[in-house]
């Protein structure tokens, strides 16, 4: 912190653009993987709940419990089984998405107007056609709302995976920041990591919102 410079060393950042790009890419991959897998599992479970509503309590209970486990604790529990690997990270990350996604998918499907379902049945839709062409499109706004929360949460959680030596922007915060507290560049690394993670979260949130708007033009137009 000599030379009258502030805590942020622009030069340090400029010299490491390649590294930052790599970390950002890893962060995106870990996030997308977790959210996509989480979405697929949640869909399966939500459909199971629809088939037999009694499953709702137990499934939400289990995913709620997973959600409550601190991430570091979950990593420590998993490492003896799956080792220090992307699998460990993803198991943890996916389990955190489940509660939000399952709840929103179930809520979204429950929110489909009963008269739309009645009409679909009377019109001769098969169950699958009704799900794909009527129920899912109408549940989309609620599902995407859940997806946005899950994504933003996951972006934050991915930084923690640096603690078990996996990449992502957490590397800047943990490895180049906290663990090198004496380095003159530690603060720069931490701030850069946080700023990029926040920017990524905001970008992902807005992108999903834009996607939802594009997919549900009917939900916006109102008059008459």
């Amino acid at each position: 912190m000599s030379d009258g410079e502030g805590p942020i060393r622009i030069g340090w950042i400029v010299d490491r653009l390649d590294l930052l790009g790599e970390l950002l890419r890893d962060h995106v991959i870990l996030t997308v993987l977790a959210v996509v897998i989480g979405l697929i599992i949640s869909f399966g479970l939500a459909l199971a709940i629809r088939g037999s509503p009694r499953l709702y309590g137990p499934i939400i209970g289990v995913s709620g419990t997973l959600y409550a486990i601190p991430s570091i604790a979950l990593f420590s529990l998993l490492i003896p089984i799956t080792g220090v690997s992307i699998v460990t990270a993803e198991i943890a990350l996916v389990s955190y998405t489940l509660l939000i996604l399952i709840r929103n998918i179930v809520e979204g499907l429950n929110g489909v107007p009963p008269e739309a379902i009645e009409a679909a049945n009377g019109m001769g839709y098969t169950r699958t056609q009704r799900l794909l062409r009527v129920e899912l499109p109408l549940a989309l706004p609620v599902i995407v709302a859940g997806l946005r929360i899950a994504t933003v949460t996951t972006v934050g959680l991915v930084t923690v995976t640096a603690l078990i030596g996996l990449g992502g922007l957490g590397y800047l915060i943990v490895n180049l920041g906290i663990l090198r507290g004496s380095s003159p560049f530690a603060a720069t690394a931490i701030y850069t990591g946080v700023a990029l993670a926040v920017a990524l979260a905001v970008f992902a949130d807005l992108a999903l919102l834009a996607l939802q708007r594009a997919l549900t033009p009917w939900a916006r137009r109102r008059s008459a």
Partner: peptide, 20 residues
């Protein structure tokens, strides 16, 4: 399902699909 496609169906709440 095939039978229903050959029979018109109108209900009180109309039940138009809001997304179409």
């Amino acid at each position: 399902v095939e039978l229903r496609r050959r029979i018109g169906y109108v209900i009180q709440q109309v039940g138009l699909f809001p997304h179409l």
